[in-house]
Every structure is written in C-alpha cells, then in structure tokens.
C-alpha cells in the first residue's frame, strides 16, 4: 500500500526523498539529448502567440486598402494581445505617419511596418543577461506570487551548470509553504548546491548566508530566490529592499542582475508590477514566463515602451532548455516568419 494519510502530523519529511524521483526525472537527459535547434524551439514555443497575433494581422491586411477601418482593426488586434492602449496608440500612430510619408497604399505593407516598429521598440532599451566572469556572478529573482520565480531559477541553474559553472542557490522564499522544498528538488535534479533555512525564518539571514557560502565555496554564480509578493504590499516590498541591501553589503557591490519575473498571461497589471518593484529594488531586467501558453505576450511591448526595462529571458516551454535569452530581432523574426 502506497497510500499515506497526512492529517496534521509531521510525516511530511519522508516525502522529500520521494519527490526527487519525480515523473519528470528523466527530462534532464532528454533535454540535452534531443538537440532541437534553439530557433526552432523558440518558434515552436511561440506558435500560439504567432497564430493569435501575427496570424490575425496577416489575415487583416491581405489585399486591403489602407484606410481608417484598417487601422481600427489593427488597434483591436494589438489591444487583444495585451499591448495596452498607450503603446497600441504609439505603434499605430507611427505606422500611420509612415504610411503617409512613404506613400504606401498596399495593405500588405502594414505587416512589414508593424514588424519594424516592434523591433525598434524592443531594441531601444535592450540589454542581454550580463554576468561577471572575473568575480562571483550574482542574481536575485523577484516577482508576484505564482509568476514562476522558482522554476525560472531551476532552469537558470541547469543552464549555468551546462556551461560548467559552479552554481549556488539561495532559498529566500521562507514564507510560502514548501517553497524551500520546491527549490531543493530543483537543486537535486540539476545537481547544484543550495543554502536553505527553516520555513518562516528571516529571508535577510538566508541572503547573508547565501553570499557567505558562495564566497567560501568559490561559486561562480549565486542565484537568490525571494518570496512572491504583490507589489502593493508596502511592508513586503520594504522587506525585499532590505534583503537586497544585505546582499549588496555582503557582496561589496551591486548584483549583476535583479530580475523581475512576469507571467506572460498578465495584462496591464504587469506595468504596475514593474513600476513598484523598480521602486523597491534596482531591477535590471524582466523574465517573461509561460509565453508558450498565451496568444498574447503583447505586454512585452508595453513594458519596453513605458518602463524602459529590457526583457532578458523568456520561458517558452516546460523543458529545462526552454528558458532562453531574449533577442528582440530573433523574437520578432520567429513571430512573423
């Protein structure tokens, strides 16, 4: 009998070991064995986005003459892709202007113009993930509840491990039930070290120990997890600021990356998230997760336009290798071709 009933007693410890033998244990080998090209994977992950967004634009513009009705339809498509009202207006105004200046009359051209405008919007503030190579590289991951912080860290750890780096994780989410276990499972799967305290302990102390351990063990990269928090909770945001200060103090310099994880299914609230997290900690970029499940992802444009924060990584699938560097041109290329 496998059946176990847990009713309020601390029998949970045993489950830890079981968890390691998860149904997906073998994905690790599979992921590296199946060498799907990076670009193909990106395209595959984005098919939903493509079908929803670009597919619609394609249908819309084919053989139509350019008039106000066309622009209104274009606006509708953009807003439906979560691009947001402001950024949609910015894009369509720019296209309107170019149509006039370049004397374009064929509706099919609109697609090209849109593509160019999106690329220029996304490249304006673009910066790739940048990690120190001559000293301990440091990353802190923040975001609202359920955005995908822990999974992102797991995938990042896998990636650095593949690059032969010595990785150390810090289980800084001491609040949510079993969040520490969740990161622990990832650490075991990927085969990297982890610093973890008890649930409910001070996240600042975890941060302190993580930096100390990273230095002592001569790690190449340290990644600190934090508890998910809604950006409007003043006290929790202050706590985040404190954790960040502890890390900076112990490192003796700023972190290489402070990444905000945003769920791609999020609507206009992502702007508020980016704004308020930026006030609490010096964000360096955004990780957009779950992009494979959405026909949208348009929030990426609103974020670039209104917050001037670069998207650095995107999650396009559930496999370990599905967290990719964001490359604006490649992204738009995959979206349109």
């Amino acid at each position: 009998m496998w059946r176990k009933i847990f009713s309020g007693k601390k029998q949970a410890e045993g489950a830890n070991i079981e968890l390691e033998q998860t149904a997906r244990e073998d994905t690790l080998e599979e992921a590296s064995a199946v060498k799907v090209g990076f670009f193909d994977r990106l395209k595959q992950g984005l098919t939903k986005t493509k079908d929803g967004f670009v597919g619609k634009v394609e249908q819309l513009v084919k053989g139509r003459k350019i008039d106000e009705a066309l622009f209104e339809d274009l606006e509708e498509i953009l807003i439906q892709a979560d691009v947001g009202f402001e950024t949609t207006m910015l894009l369509t105004d720019k296209i309107r202007q170019r149509v006039e200046e370049e004397r374009i009359s064929d509706g099919g051209e609109i697609q090209r113009l849109l593509k160019e405008e999106i690329v220029s919007l996304l490249t304006a503030h673009y910066k790739p993930l940048t990690l120190s190579t001559d000293r301990l590289a440091s990353i802190m991951v923040v975001g609202v509840n359920g955005a995908g912080k822990t999974t992102t860290i797991g995938k990042l750890a896998y990636r650095f491990k593949q690059e032969k780096a010595k990785v150390l994780l810090g289980a800084g989410d001491t609040f949510r039930a079993a969040a520490i276990d969740q990161l622990q499972v990832w650490a075991n799967r990927v085969g990297v070290d982890i610093v973890a305290h008890q649930e409910g302990s001070d996240p600042g102390a975890v941060a302190y120990d993580t930096v100390a351990a990273a230095k002592a063990r001569k790690a190449d990269v340290m990644i600190l997890d934090t508890a998910g928090r809604l950006q409007t909770k003043t006290n929790l945001m202050a706590e985040l600021g404190k954790v960040h200060r502890v890390v900076v103090r112990e490192l003796g310099h700023e972190l290489d990356e402070v990444l905000l994880v945003v769920d791609a299914t999020t609507g206009q609230n992502a702007l508020s998230q980016a704004r308020l997290f930026k006030e609490a900690v010096p964000l360096t970029g955004i990780v957009l997760t779950k992009l494979d499940g959405t026909a949208k992802g348009g929030i990426i444009l609103a974020l670039a336009n209104e917050l001037e924060l670069p998207v650095k990584l995107i999650g396009v699938g559930e496999q370990y290798t599905d967290l990719q560097d964001f490359d604006p041109e490649q992204f738009v290329e995959a979206l349109f071709n």
Binding site: A12, T22, Q182
Partner: peptide, 17 residues
C-alpha cells in the same frame, strides 16, 4: 498535483496549518 516539485508538500503543510 504530482508534477510541480513540492506541490504535495505545500498542500500538506497548509493542511497542517
């Protein structure tokens, strides 16, 4: 939820609470 790491543990901890 047998897929997400530690999801079972999470529910057990909450149940205990």
């Amino acid at each position: 939820d047998i897929y997400r790491p530690a999801a079972i543990k999470q529910l057990m901890v909450l149940g205990e609470q």
